[in-house]
Amino acid sequence: MLLIHCPYCGETLPETEFAYAGEAHIARPENPSEQTDAEWVEYLFMRSNVKGVHFERWRHIHGCGRFFNAARHTVTDKFLTTYKAGEPRPDIEALTGIKAGVKEGEK
């Protein structure tokens, strides 16, 4: 069972209180009606599926209820950091020396 730091509660808590909520930093377009089919497909379906550092959303559903973002390494399953919704993507390379979104061996 993972331990996850909720940036709203300021506590590191058991995974059972949290729910995964998909890839982070995929903003809903301001005016969906103006989106081309290709743009809408990109928003609706395309996800990065990285082997490495993945930016993703979690919800502290059985806690404070807030959605927040996390950087998690999909190979080690280790959280590098979590941060509040709306905050910019942190610089993981500066934090840890691991390049974000880069496949193993390509570093």
């Binding site: 909520a21 919800r59 959605f67």
Partner: peptide, 13 residues
């Protein structure tokens, strides 16, 4: 409820 909270918190705060 989860879907509504998602939009409210992250798209329309």
């Amino acid at each position: 409820l989860n879907m509504m909270e998602d939009y409210l918190q992250t798209e329309w705060p």
